[in-house]
């Protein structure tokens, strides 16, 4: 048991965490942020993808204690109330969502990709999403959504959210 504090979706959180707790369990069970999904609990499906200090990670294999002092962005931190992030808009309009269980992880992987590479090729998109399994869509609509999001967001996409978050830090 140890007291940690970190930034979650731009807000500070402080609380007790146990050594065996993962970041996924922490954000789902203690913070109630259930948008991040547990699909395999082994880092093999990507449903639990969040962005930790700017990098996408499988939150199910990150020890919760490790996020002390860090910044975590989850699916809940992407939209601003009713205003969706362009990636979310694109996932809706391109038909990239079916059962939706992989969707939050897919969107977070997409966000990490576009932050570092605002205009990826199709192949780069597929490579970037290889760690996110989807059983419903066959990925085609998802790739289309990422392409559309890249067009919608352009170069600005990278700056937007991280800027807002760092302002609050």
């Amino acid at each position: 048991m140890a007291l940690i504090s970190f930034m979650i979706n731009g807000q500070p959180w402080k609380g007790q965490v146990e050594a065996h707790e993962t970041l996924l369990d922490l954000i789902r069970d203690k913070l109630g942020l259930t948008g991040t999904k547990k699909g395999c609990d082994s880092g093999e499906c990507g449903a639990c993808t969040v962005i930790l200090n700017g990098l996408s990670v499988n939150s199910c294999i990150v020890p919760a204690l490790e996020v002390e002092g860090k910044e975590v962005l989850t699916i809940e931190g992407l939209s601003r109330g009713e205003v969706l992030h362009p990636i979310q808009e694109a996932f809706i309009s391109e038909g990239a969502v079916q059962c939706g269980f992989c969707t939050p992880g897919m969107i977070m992987s997409t966000k990490a990709l576009l932050d570092s590479n605002p205009h990826p090729s199709k192949q780069e998109i597929r490579q970037a999403l290889a760690g996110n399994l989807c059983r419903c869509t066959g990925y085609g609509r998802i790739v289309a959504a990422v392409e559309k999001a890249a067009k919608m967001g352009g170069d600005d996409l990278a700056g937007n959210d991280s800027r807002e978050i760092s302002d609050k830090v």
Partner: peptide, 15 residues
């Protein structure tokens, strides 16, 4: 577009 896509892209759909 999908009826429940909004809830799903913001992580609010409850499984």
């Amino acid at each position: 577009t999908k009826y429940d896509a909004f809830a799903k892209v913001i992580g609010e759909a409850q499984y």
